[in-house]
Design a protein around this nucleic acid. Structure first.
Length: 280
DNA sequence: AACGCGCCCTGTCCGC
DNA sequence: TGCGGACAGGGCGCGT
């Protein structure tokens, strides 16, 4: 479920709620989520450590435990919840991390696609450097975007979702950014002109920034650490709106499948160029 | 190397 | 109402 805005919202919530708290230990309900680490090693790696800070890298939630880092990726249906004493436990607990103050940091995941891992600070630093660039950071510029796309025959929509180059954009915000940039999702990434790369760069940043301000998009499962929904869903311009009128021109929004995932776009506002830069 | 696809898993919804 | 198939905010590992 969660893309950059949802993960950022979770991080900000956790920062407020658990900075300074100490993890008592880990009760692993579903060991597949921490594999190949064993439950005993996982517990030993985080038990009695104090949470010094919480940050985000790509779609990962990173808890700073001093020498160690606890890294959580929510994948599709993961939730990282802070339960107060007496709060009922939700339906699909996967890893319980009681805090010494009586609260519980609970990793909850219906589909169990999510992953939790622990690293030394150095090891996480090394892995973090190997990830793609942050779209809201200083490295992400129109020139860099065009450079990274210069050889790719992948469709723009699929390219945006590939975390090896630019991180954080998933299925919802890829469609939304392309609509805002008035670019066809089917264009080859390498056909972007300088002006188009500029529009796409601005659109990616704008939609992610606005979605963070609205605390993310809840379609179904997404919740912040307090269990609250995001508020961006009714501001989506194309995602999940197949057949409904485009908010700009009134034409029906179309749904196609790219790389096995749904893409939504306006066939009028996001028309492909007529002869330059052929499409696939 | 780059790309496309299947798969991991559970739940929900829609058509018959 | 039951049942099968499609689909769901992601990412990895495989084969080509």
């Amino acid at each position: 479920m969660p893309e950059l805005p949802e993960v950022e919202t979770v991080v900000r919530g956790l920062r407020r709620l658990v900075t300074g708290a100490t993890i008592r230990g880990a009760e692993v309900v579903h060991a597949d989520l921490i594999a190949p680490t064993s439950p005993a090693d996982f517990d030993a790696g985080i038990a009695q450590r104090t949470i010094r800070g919480v940050s985000r890298r790509a779609k990962n939630i990173v808890l700073d435990l001093g020498e160690a880092r606890l890294v959580v990726n929510l994948r599709m249906t993961g939730r990282l919840l802070v339960l107060e004493p007496g709060d009922p436990e939700p339906s699909h607990p996967a890893v319980r991390m009681p805090l010494t103050d009586g609260r519980v940091l609970l990793y909850h995941d219906v589909r169990r696609f999510g992953r939790l891992d622990r690293f030394t600070a150095e090891e996480w630093e090394r892995r973090s450097r190997a990830l793609g660039i942050e779209p809201l950071g200083p490295e992400f510029t129109p020139e860099r975007l065009r450079w990274l796309a210069r050889t790719s025959r992948v469709a723009l929509k699929t390219w945006l979702m590939d975390q090896r180059r630019v991180v954080g954009v998933g299925n919802i915000y890829a469609s939304e950014a392309l609509f805002r940039a008035r670019l066809s999702p089917r264009r080859w990434a390498r056909t972007l002109t300088r002006a188009e790369a500029g529009r796409l760069h601005d659109a990616v940043r704008a939609v992610l920034t606005e979605a963070i301000e609205f605390r993310g998009t809840t379609l179904l499962d997404y919740r912040d650490p307090s269990g609250e929904r995001g508020n961006f869903a009714d501001r989506l311009l194309v995602y999940d709106r197949a057949g409904e009128p485009c908010r700009v021109c009134g034409a029906p929004i179309r749904r196609i499948v790219q790389g096995g995932r749904s893409t939504f776009f306006c066939p009028t506002c996001q028309r492909r160029p007529r002869r330059a830069a052929r499409d696939r």
